[in-house]
Amino acid sequence: MTLTELLDALNAGHTITGNSPLHHVMHETSQDALRVTGELNGGYHPPARVRELIAELVGGAVDESVTVFPPFHADFGKNITIGKRVFINSGCKFQDQGGITIGDDCLIGHNTVLATLNHDLEPSRRADLHPAPIRIGRNVWIGANATILPGVTIGDNAVVAAAAVVTKDVPADTVVVGSPARAVRAVAG
């Protein structure tokens, strides 16, 4: 099995069975992510070097307008897409196996967690993984300590308040707060 085959399965939403060949490829890929994030988080790096390390982590180009403040953690790395003029503050954790897409002009607050995998509820199948992507639109602001769960899409210009737990899609131009997050008002335009 290859990384390409794993990404195809993850992006199609297929269950990754515990201890399967695809599960093993996922764990091997995670070792590379741990190596890169270890270097990233092991000391000071100028912004250009941070972007180089993030590009190595995701396996593709990262625009020079992107800013990431370490520490930053990703336990897979190869299923993240970052737009232009994105700011990711320190302490963020991305579980990206299911796919994370961040649109242009987004602000991601301290200690935000983006989680794209669920384990199976059946105890005998608990090692099985169910991927679902997180899609963050353009110009989204996610406050500190927010958690975005698998399968969530956040619409353009939305605001996720600090410490919110987002369990379902957020419409464009909407402010959500709480756990579980609920809409409280529209974004003034």
Rank of each mutant, 00 (worst) to 15 (best):
L149G: 07
N89L: 01
H14F: 03
R35N: 12
C106K: 05
D75R: 04
G13F: 11
V62G: 09
P171K: 09
S90F: 14
V187C: 03
I100S: 02
V165L: 11
S179Q: 13
H45G: 04
G151T: 09
D104A: 11
D105K: 02
V62P: 09
L40K: 08
N19G: 01
F72Q: 05
R35S: 05
A61F: 05
C106G: 07
H110S: 00
A188G: 05
V68L: 10
V177G: 01
P21L: 11
L121Q: 08
N157T: 10
T2M: 10
E56D: 14
F72C: 03
G137W: 05
R185I: 01
Q95F: 14
G77I: 12
E122R: 15
V176E: 01
R135F: 02
R185G: 01
V58W: 07
E64G: 04
D32V: 14
K78Q: 11
E52V: 10
G59K: 11
N111M: 09
N139E: 12
D32Y: 14
L117P: 10
T29H: 09
D104C: 08
T116F: 07
V160R: 06
N145E: 13
G189N: 13
G137L: 02
P150N: 12
R182F: 02
T116G: 13
V66H: 08
V166H: 08
A55E: 08
A181Q: 03
V68K: 07
K78D: 05
F87P: 00
H110R: 07
G98T: 04
S65H: 05
I54C: 06
H73T: 15
P71N: 02
V66W: 06
P21A: 14
C92R: 07
T101E: 05
L117C: 13
D96K: 07
K78F: 06
L107Y: 12
R138T: 14
A33V: 00
P70N: 12
D156W: 07
S179D: 06
I16W: 07
I108S: 01
G60T: 10
G155E: 11
A115M: 14
Y44V: 06
I54V: 14
V25N: 08
G18L: 09
P123W: 12
H23D: 15
L129E: 15
P171H: 11
D75F: 12
S20C: 06
A74D: 15
N79M: 11
E28K: 13
A115D: 04
D128E: 10
Y44A: 12
T2N: 13
G143I: 05
I16N: 11
L6G: 08
H27S: 03
G83L: 01
I108R: 00
F76W: 14
I142K: 04
V177T: 03
V175C: 03
N11P: 13
K78P: 00
H45D: 10
N111E: 13
R126G: 07
P70T: 10
I54D: 01
E39V: 14
V113R: 08
E5K: 15
